[in-house]
Design a protein around this nucleic acid. Structure first.
Lengths: 211, 211
DNA sequence: AATTGTTTACGAATAATTTCACAAAAGGTA
DNA sequence: TACCTTTTGTGAAATTATTCGTAAACAATT
């Protein structure tokens, strides 16, 4: 274990492993070998061990891993042993879809503030949270200790909203718009493209390599 | 150009490039260099050229690429020059979120059938499409020429729904459940995890490599 | 206590992807 | 026409990620 730079693919897989381990816990299985995890999530056993090796030694030779123990290690590594406060900016189709989706809360991401500029939306509730005017952004971020912002506004407002999120002090931003956003170095930015997966599927269905 | 196996990362980037080119078309820019695309989407110019090189020679040395021309090449490569008929199985929180999201239709993916087993949902409309009982799956897939299925049911039903989709003749499946699904070799399967991006963010925010 | 069968951890080997660097092609200019 | 500038296309090099192969560790059994 040396752990300087962890490959993104490794982190993604850890997230997958953790979900699989959770499933095993429900099935009351308490020990598992890398090969079983591998089969369970569709990678190689060497991959599983290599991924884990970035962070330490969690297993017992000849035995495997204690499910609960490994699970909590992974959750800790992923930063999911705490509750994250999240602000959602843009309560349109995509934004409200995300707000309604339970998968985030299940993993500790609590959308505690939802903002928009549309007067028709402001004041209505989304999954129990009142949609407010973007003007209150700074106040809400500070009072709720919000660290993560989800940007689901129209492309043209994306950079503006992002700048305001940064000024207000969030540390991470998940950008759902198809725009490249500029943020200072200390801010973690990730871009999400919902339809890219469908397009990958479309490519694989259609592209039967000419030549 | 040899193009046997195209890296997945390349296909993802093509999708990004295509969106950026579309933006350029709206701005009525008609020629662009790889370096500009690169800056626009946040990769290196060599990367852009390498990615394109898998599929042919689209540019003019000393000049760059004709925006519209490259755009339509990319859309063709990605299989987005046609309309895809899509079936959505599972009209719960996540399913309805996806059905309401416009981004899919914008890229040619038309969700023309939505199924569920919940009597309370069946008969109601989602984005203009009536939710029907899963019993009609086979009929709808055939009559609408559906090739792609989105699985947004609870984890426990996922494999069952998948099997039925395969039997009914879809060629591609996008799995939104946290389960590893088994499909025959000729079926293209992709797994999507909505919260994995948030978790990657969480990891990057939290993990300041001990040792 | 010795033996056997597993399974991890990890360095080494291999494979895949990205970046580099430059010749070749095109357009513009004199 | 010759020359200059720009930018592509692409092998080669560098980097990054994955797989392989095996020693070491452990449990179970005799």
């Amino acid at each position: 274990m040396k752990a300087y730079k962890i490959p993104e693919a490794t982190v993604m897989r850890l997230s997958i492993y953790s979900r699989y381990l959770h499933q095993l816990m429900e099935e009351e299985i308490d020990t598992i070998a890398s090969g079983d995890i591998a089969r369970g999530v569709g990678v190689s056993s060497a991959q599983v061990r290599k991924d884990l090796a970035y962070f330490g030694e969690f297993g017992t030779r000849g035995v495997g891993y204690k499910v609960e123990e490994l699970y909590s290690h992974l959750m800790k590594i992923l930063g999911l042993d705490k509750r994250w406060s999240v602000i959602l900016v843009g309560a349109g189709k995509l934004g409200s879809a995300l707000a309604l989706y339970h998968g985030f809360l299940d993993r500790g991401f609590h959308i505690c503030t939802v903002l928009d500029i549309d007067e028709k939306l402001i004041g209505t509730k989304l999954n129990g949270v009142i949609i407010e005017n973007v003007d209150v952004m700074n106040a809400r971020i500070i009072e709720n200790n919000i660290e993560i912002g989800l940007v689901t506004v129209p492309a043209l407002s994306a950079q503006n909203v992002t700048d305001r999120l940064v000024e207000s002090g969030v540390s991470g931003i998940l950008n759902f718009t198809p725009r490249v956003l500029k943020v200072p170095n200390h801010i973690i930015l990730r871009n999400v493209d919902l339809s890219v997966n469908l397009e990958l599927l479309s490519f694989n269905l259609g592209y039967h390599y000419k030549r």
